[in-house]
Design a binder for these strands. Structure first.
Length: 644
DNA sequence: CGAACCGTTGGGTTC
DNA sequence: CGAACCCAACGGTTC
């Protein structure tokens, strides 16, 4: 038997401590171990990732690479710039690999990717070793012990978890690592096609990370933000296992905080420091193990002299919610992240619905602008110009720092969907995906469904007020003053509703409340927009619309949703794109043939204008661009035409 | 089977 | 000022 030559494939497990998969690799007693990262074009071009999360990823990779080198000066994180599906078979041959080891990943794309890679490994005679480590429980096990169904409530997770058994204690980081073998790459690099590039709006120059397979210096280095062509990151939150373990230690040192933490009682208005742990981005990239977190907390709780908090509100409870969302996503795959064809997501006729590729049934990443006012509200929401200081402060904090408090996320999500704009939760999820440094598809999508009352939660009459809610924890308005500095000098009486401020006071406090957020400040006088709608009025409209949608009771996989006949069930004057003749022909699907027929049949100039408007494609940045070559639209069109 | 109760995180009024 | 209660009312689970 030849001695094992092992590739350890790092993905969302950028750490050395508590890695069951890395332990499995070392247990093989390999002759050589290659710690690698495959620079996947799916992540570079297809996922929405802003500069702040890129920075966090590169931080995490660089820190891990340094830690590997500290254990073995010959080793590092070998970063190889090619899609894993084409790269790995070539590596198997070039390095005479016997084993491929990685941590299980149940994300929809990751499953497909790993299935492909496992088939290729089998073909190459390479043994694959997979270990669970990303969540407290294996999501597939959770489903199995939840009667084969997705975990949709925390009690289901707790019941299934009790059947699975104890959560494993963390594994210490290895004290040494085997040498890598030769690192020859005597094969051709397959350079990916960079279009469509969903991250083009994140760049201010060309992306150039595929210039050479082992990087511009041939040293397998982690790419730089410069190579990625990214705009400058603005977040103060930085990544890496070293920082993660330091941050955890600091939290654990405060025994009262750790043992009595109750999420609903933490303040979303707190900043410097924030009221929650901010460990979520480390959990996402795997620079912190969830079991390390769980047991360090549990050990404090079990020796705590006072009354400790309990799941689901306690710190460990937060990890259970994470597992719940993974257990839901793992069962539903791609359909989990969209309404269309989702068996567990309620259908609500929101504005700005996702465009669906009729062939695959999957969201294309684009959306339909059914209503110009909703589009304007969406853009104002995204860029923090709604005229509601609480909402705007949160969205500005999100954009610049990449992190906001969980309850702040509730506030902006409720406002965008069922409690204000009546805009599709998928639009909000897209923005969070782009800007959050802790973006985790399962948790992000799950929480957007929760807040929009389309899954996990149904009490839509409980609605967050952008005025009353922040007042509870921040009557002075310090949070708003920090992130909406033009209102810094406003009296606390008006800080959450500045449009009520007398003109004389507006002038005295240096900010005029007027316009829609597009107006420039004049001299030393700032301008802050008027609220974009009357909130109590919108709340009433939304609750009424939600009540109607609930009574109709469709889910995303209902035949009426799939074929578009849902329209007949909703009133023409209700919220949402419900107007039978004016709306897109089939559910959220744009049927190209029908669209073309309609175009030909256009008679009035009014209709003509509308048809032309539909041809504009709105990017995830809310910027209009021409639909054409290089867009996902174009790709889909090509695919369809080929079939015809 | 129906009623009661519960669900991590609402707002407003009353006491 | 904090706790208790109502508002108008969801689905899922328990009894």
């Amino acid at each position: 038997m030849p001695k094992p030559r092992v590739i350890y494939w790092f993905r969302t497990d950028l750490r050395l401590h508590d890695s069951p998969a890395l332990k499995a690799a070392l247990d093989l007693k390999p002759e050589c171990l290659y710690p690698i990262w495959t620079w996947d074009p799916h992540y570079v071009y297809r996922a929405r990732v802003g500069p702040n999360r890129w920075q966090f990823l590169l931080d995490s990779q660089n820190d891990l690479s340094a830690s590997i080198t500290a254990l073995n000066p010959k080793s590092k994180l070998f970063l190889i710039r090619e899609a894993p599906q084409t790269l790995l078979p070539k590596l198997f041959r070039a390095w005479q690999i016997t084993h491929l080891v990685f941590e299980k990943d149940t994300d929809a794309y990751a499953r497909e990717r790993d299935d492909t890679v496992m088939a290729l490994a089998k073909k190459a005679g390479v043994e694959v070793v997979v270990r669970t480590g990303r969540t407290l429980y294996d999501p597939d096990e959770l489903i199995k012990f939840n009667k084969g169904k997705p975990t949709m409530s925390i009690s289901q997770v707790q019941a299934a978890g009790a059947k699975i058994g104890d959560i494993a204690r963390p594994i210490p980081a290895p004290k040494s690592l085997p040498d890598p073998g030769n690192t020859n790459l005597d094969f051709e690099q397959e350079v990916p096609v960079p279009t469509p590039d969903f991250n083009s709006n994140q760049r201010d120059r060309d992306e150039n990370t595929y210039s050479a397979i082992a990087g511009p210096n041939g040293d397998f280095a982690v790419p730089t933000l410069n190579e990625l062509g990214l705009r400058k990151p603005s977040s103060p939150h930085r990544g890496g296992e070293t920082l993660a373990l330091e941050a955890l230690a600091k939290i654990i040192a405060n025994k009262t905080y750790t043992a009595t933490f109750e999420k609903p009682n933490t303040a979303p208005t707190a900043f410097e420091p924030q009221s929650t742990t901010l460990l979520s981005p480390h959990l996402h990239f795997g620079s912190l193990s969830c079991r390390e977190f769980y047991w360090r907390v549990q050990d404090v709780v079990s020796t705590f002299k006072g009354k400790a908090s309990q799941p689901p509100t306690s710190l460990t409870g937060q990890l259970l919610f994470r597992d719940m969302y993974f257990g839901a996503q793992a069962d539903m795959g791609h359909s989990f992240a969209q309404t269309y064809n989702n068996s567990h997501c309620r259908f609500i006729p929101w504005h700005l619905p996702s465009e669906i590729d009729a062939e695959t049934g999957r969201a294309t990443g684009e959306y339909q602008t059914d209503d110009s006012q909703a589009q304007e509200w969406f853009t104002r929401w995204k860029y923090g110009r709604t005229g509601f200081p609480w909402i705007d402060a949160l969205m500005r904090q999100l954009r610049t720092e990449g992190w906001i408090h969980h309850l702040g996320r509730h506030a902006v999500a409720c406002f965008l969907t069922r409690g204000g704009c009546y805009i599709d939760w998928e639009r909000g999820a897209d923005v969070f995906e782009e800007w959050l440094i802790d973006h985790e598809t399962a948790c992000n999508v799950g929480n957007w469904q929760w807040l929009s009352c389309t899954a996990f939660y149904a009490q839509f009459y409980r609605c967050y007020s952008p005025i009353a809610f922040p007042k509870k924890t921040d009557p002075e308005g310090d949070f708003v003053r920090r992130y909406v500095p033009e209102l810094e000098r406003f009296d606390k009486k008006y800080i959450y509703e500045p449009w009520k401020t007398p003109i004389a006071d507006q002038k005295a406090w240096g900010c005029i409340i007027k316009g829609d957020g597009t107006e420039e400040s004049k001299g030393d006088m700032h301008v802050y927009p008027k609220p974009m709608f009357d909130f109590p009025e919108r709340r009433e409209v939304c609750i009424k619309a939600m009540k109607k949608a609930y009574s109709i009771g469709l889910y995303g996989n209902d035949p009426k949703v799939l074929d578009g006949t849902w329209r007949a069930l909703f009133d023409d004057d209700a919220e949402g794109p419900t107007e039978g003749k004016q709306g897109p022909p089939g559910a959220m699907v744009v049927d190209e043939q029908k669209e073309a027929d309609e175009e030909e049949a256009v008679q009035s100039s009014e209709q003509k204008a509308r048809t032309q408007k539909k041809k504009e494609v709105i990017t995830n940045a809310g910027q209009k661009r021409e639909a054409g070559q290089g867009t996902l639209d174009a790709m889909v069109v090509r695919k369809k035409k080929k079939k015809v």
